[in-house]
Nucleic acid binder design. Structure first.
Length: 223
DNA sequence: AAGTGATCATAA
DNA sequence: TTATGATCACTT
């Protein structure tokens, strides 16, 4: 049986995550009387939510780390059979109105990335979802150099938003962090501002970590 | 095969 | 509509 209360320390959180390493998603789902979705297409966040249940994350859908009292963010990371991430990692949504007077230190990106519990998950399409296993966790903080690059990316992209250059933002920008759409569909709209500083309807966006960066994180632990 | 842009579910 | 959890699928 597992604890139903939030972990009281990083050590406890890490221990709980280690305890489920090797378990299949089917076995984990069974503990919560959940059915494994037949396809991920209509259950894209299912694995992440399953792990939140198991580890008793409490942030809900607030723009806070999953374990606010510990300042730790939880991220599942789909990996192929070579241990390489198969997808980019969503970090947080972006407020396109008043991203002004925000600093790196107080930004949601930094508050979520300063401490992350990464849980790699087998994600080879050849393995049925229920049989994919949870891999050993990594409790990570960016190195000084990584933090500098993340900050530079964040500053560059945030500046563009502040200067009304939303239209010129592409996923090609940013070394580790990039901005991509984060919406129900291409017709979802939210308020932003154009080059003249006028309110404009635009596609909601989010910050994402490139797979090359999360791969680097895995290497730094498994090297 | 990568990488970018599009999309799906759900809660408040 | 905004936030969370992400993966899908088309283009390059």
């Amino acid at each position: 049986m597992n604890d139903l209360t939030p972990p009281k320390s990083e050590q406890e959180l890490l221990a709980r995550a280690h305890a489920i390493a090797g378990l299949s998603l089917g076995a984990l789902a069974e503990k919560f009387l959940l059915k494994v979705p037949k396809q991920q297409l209509y259950a894209k966040g299912w694995i992440g939510e399953l792990l939140e249940l198991q580890l008793v994350a409490t942030a809900g859908s607030r723009p806070e780390p999953d374990f606010p009292h510990l300042g730790v963010e939880l991220k599942t990371l789909p990996i192929n059979q070579l241990g390489k991430p198969r997808e980019s990692t969503f970090v947080c949504s972006i407020n396109l109105n008043n991203s002004l007077n925000k600093t790196w230190e107080t930004s949601t990106v930094w508050r979520k990335l300063r401490r992350v519990l990464w849980i790699p998950i087998e994600a080879d399409p050849a393995i049925p979802l229920a049989e994919r296993r949870v891999c050993p966790p990594l409790l990570w903080s960016p190195t000084a150099e990584q933090a500098m690059i993340l900050q530079a990316d964040w500053q560059e992209l945030t500046d563009m938003i502040c200067f009304g250059q939303l239209a010129q933002i592409t996923a090609k920008l940013g070394r580790y962090l990039q901005i991509r759409p984060k919406a129900a569909h291409a017709k979802s709209l939210c308020w932003g501002s154009n080059e003249k500083g006028e309110p404009t309807l635009t596609l909601p966006r989010g910050f994402y970590l490139r797979t090359s960066f999360t791969h680097q994180i895995l290497q730094q632990y498994y090297a």
